[in-house]
């Protein structure tokens, strides 16, 4: 085994009769930031959801540290050290910030919860200010911080993020992405699905481009940023 933390081989996923992913193969190495970019409906989110077994992959392998996740129940996958920040944040809106974070500790139990909550508050001071506030009363950027903080509460080795820039002001996106860099620097591998190709590719070590459920291109972030096809399609090219 190499030090690949996530390796996806020939993954096919269907929604009923519709094939959403076609023979997708990609890998993520330990400590890397890898991004998957693509247009709306390309299958990016489906790929992230498939890693968590919902929908289940019809064929292919999803190897996390050598373990095939394809047949493992969703709730057990989180316990293996994979955390997901779902699309649209999906914070528990009626619960307070602190409760949201506590929920994040579910995969590893509450023994480290107090210590980890302090760490998250240091990382996102904004959340500390809002700790007793209900999540729904916060701005989109704060909710995104909360969703990321909640995922980090499970002490994941691999953090999956589904469009963290969705619906956020450019300046907030920048802040969030800076934080993602910090998270990776502390040793958590980050796999990021984004439509905001520009930001994502600048941040990422490597990137994949997905079109119609297939991987079209791959390369380092800078290579893809320079690629004509990518510029044309996702960066509003010149």
């Amino acid at each position: 085994m190499s030090d690949k933390i996530l390796e996806i081989k020939n993954l096919n996923t269907f929604y009923g009769p519709i094939q959403a992913l076609r023979d997708v193969s990609l890998d993520v190495e330990q400590g890397e930031i890898v991004t998957l970019i693509g247009a709306n409906g390309a299958g990016k989110s489906t790929l992230l959801m498939s890693i968590f077994g919902n929908p289940r992959a019809a064929s292919g392998e999803i190897l996390y540290k050598g373990t095939n996740l394809v047949n493992i129940p969703t709730h057990k996958i989180a316990k293996l050290g994979v955390a997901q920040v779902p699309e649209g944040r999906r914070v528990f809106s009626g619960m307070t910030v602190e409760e949201n974070l506590l929920m994040g500790a579910t995969p590893i139990g509450m023994s480290h919860a107090d210590e980890d909550i302090k760490r998250i508050y240091e990382f996102f001071p904004r959340l500390l200010e809002r700790r007793n506030q209900r999540a729904v009363t916060m701005s989109g950027g704060e909710q995104q911080m909360l969703a990321i903080g909640r995922a980090l509460m499970g002490r994941p080795e691999l953090l999956l993020l589904d469009e963290p820039s969705l619906g956020l002001a450019p300046i907030i996106v920048k802040q969030i992405f800076t934080k993602l860099k910090d998270i990776a620097a502390e040793g958590t591998t980050v796999f990021l699905v984004e439509q905001n190709a520009n930001h994502a590719l600048k941040l990422a070590d490597r990137g994949y481009v997905m079109v119609n459920g297939q991987i079209r291109l791959t390369g380092t972030g800078d290579e893809l940023l320079a690629n004509d096809e990518v510029r044309e399609a996702y960066l509003g090219g010149h």
Binding site: A78, A83, P86, R90, M95
Partner: peptide, 24 residues
């Protein structure tokens, strides 16, 4: 208790619950 919080979390958002390793 954790189970009470889990109930509320389930009410708020089932997908988030499952992604956090809760058995719905």
């Amino acid at each position: 208790m954790p189970i009470g919080r889990a109930w509320e979390a389930l009410r708020e958002n089932e997908i988030a619950c499952r992604s956090l390793g809760m058995n719905h």
